[in-house]
Write a protein that binds this DNA or RNA. Structure first.
Lengths: 303, 303
DNA sequence: ATTTGCATTTTTGCACCAAGAAAGCCATTG
DNA sequence: CAATGGCTTTCTTGGTGCAAAAATGCAAAT
């Protein structure tokens, strides 16, 4: 009985909670609490726990629920691959995005074409296209079919994004509605320090980039103007699309982290002016030293 | 035989072309050309022409295609209502948006609930929800159902939007990649002068607001940075959602038109600095004098 | 030679059914 | 005896075939 995607996703999240120690070994897992936490009903949570019990990650006591077992790395290894790979699929969305960015699909296609190419059901394809629409690079044609919109595909787009961010991010901090929220600052400090101290070389690139975006998004959110925040989220999504194809410069990331911490320090001292200025410098630096290394895909390249 | 929505939409567009004189009376209509123009195949165009022929707006000559007839106001009247009302439906999207903005639906709903409430098929509902997602105020829940996100619902949102625009629009004009395109300027001048001279009192409010947005979007596009343009389009969509519920101040619109023309004049003289400054003033004025009159809907109001 | 008008092919929308998620209920447990 | 697990029931949604609609091909007419 192949568990549903939702169940697997939840299994994955629970496992992460245990691995990261947020659920201590031996602890009892309340179905209801986890369901509320994930925003779903108890059914998929329960199934996820069954799955994890099968994998010896949880222990089921009859009529008493599930308990976290010790996860030894050696033991966890196999089981982990079993679920993790299934749970986070290879993301058809990214495959499509990549194909479009490298001109391997025409700019106008039918749904049928896409379904065959990526082997998707109608609903799955809709999911992907909704996302692409949301990110702003796909739209329905009036009759049948979809059109992909030209996305600046190269360094030019990076520059445009950074020019835009250099404008809005520092300005957002100077908005009259900007409010310093110490809790948010503390949380970001925790994350950035965590990255810097422990494992900047080890963490998956995806996570590193995510944390970076998160920092900027949380700061801009303090402006109290949701449209600044939205605009940033929007361009960050596009940036991610381009960036995950380029090599991550981990050394550069270290510099960025410490700059983030500097900005946080200024904000903690309520020195918004300087923080805004530093933010601009920070973005400018990122633009100037942006690694121009773009990994070419194996496929042929149409100029 | 009730024609399809696409057919009706095209019929409507063709009629608009004739009414506005862009297709002179007596002119032959090439199926292929119109199909290309609308981005569809010949089939729906042809059907639309049949519909219009039935309504005596076109004349069909066997094997020679369709020709535009004179459209007398008196004659056109009835036929016009026939199609126009059908073609541009009452937009379920706006109904949903309105219901959400006035707290008449809960923040978490199932698709079923929405389908029943607005009497939509699954595909139609998807269409609506995709749009709402795209505009940033709806998202899927993990299991079943959708969640509507809190949108600043009143004057506060207007202010936020204008603060944002006051930042990005003038700045976009000062970007190093900003290029003056005389053709675009001329087109906008034509539109703005048209509004000002003829019929600012007569045109439908929808059209007036659309032309206003268009002006700003075309100008910001000249910045050569697609992200500025995107950001503006995004907030304009939200603004429209809020604005179509408020009373249109036609006198104020007249002032805006002439300010638009002043900006155009400066740009035509390549005086970008002053144009940017004036743009900021223009937006500031719009913010300051923004009509706070919001029409209340008939329904009860929570809170 | 071009374009219409019709025929053919292809694509998508819609109704139905099974899988999956949510909610209710009661026994068990501490 | 309150709280929670385990099971059952109810409801929602995703996947699949047919019909409507759009795209395309082609002979005939101008």
């Amino acid at each position: 009985m192949p568990a549903s995607p939702l169940t697997l996703r939840i299994a994955d999240e629970i496992k992460e909670l245990i691995r990261s120690g947020r659920i201590p070994v031996g602890e009892h897992l309340s179905t209801q609490r986890l369901a509320d936490q994930f925003g779903v009903s108890r059914s998929p949570v329960r199934e996820a726990m069954q799955v994890l019990a099968d994998q010896r990650i949880l222990e089921q006591h009859l009529n008493r629920g599930f308990f976290a077992r010790a996860v030894t790395e050696s033991r966890g290894k196999k089981a982990r691959n079993d679920v993790a790979e299934l749970a986070r699929g290879p993301s058809e969305y990214e495959a499509l995005a990549d194909d479009w960015l490298t001109d391997r699909i025409p700019s106008e296609v039918t749904e049928q074409f896409l379904r065959k190419r990526y082997d998707l059901t109608k609903a799955q394809l809709t999911e992907v296209l909704v996302r692409a629409t949301r990110e702003g690079w796909a739209e329905r044609k009036p009759g049948y079919g979809w059109r992909f919109l030209p996305v600046a595909k190269t360094t030019e787009a990076f520059e445009q994004i950074y020019r835009f961010r250099m404008l809005i991010e520092p300005a957002a901090m100077l908005e009259p509605t900007f409010r310093i929220d110490r809790q948010v600052l503390a949380e970001q400090r925790r994350i950035q320090e965590g990255m810097l101290s422990s494992d900047i070389a080890k963490l998956p690139a995806e996570r590193l980039l995510h944390n970076g975006s998160l920092f900027h998004e949380e700061i801009i959110k303090l402006s109290g103007n949701m449209f600044f925040h939205r605009a940033l989220v929007q361009v960050n999504r596009m940036r991610r699309l381009l960036e995950y194809r380029s090599k991550v410069d981990r050394q550069r990331l270290q510099v960025q982290c410490s700059e983030h911490l500097q900005i946080l320090a200024l904000l903690e001292n309520a020195n918004v002016m300087d923080a805004s200025y530093l933010m601009r410098q920070h973005l400018n630096g990122a633009l100037a030293r942006k690694s121009p290394v773009i990994l070419k895909r194996d496929g042929e390249k149409k100029d």
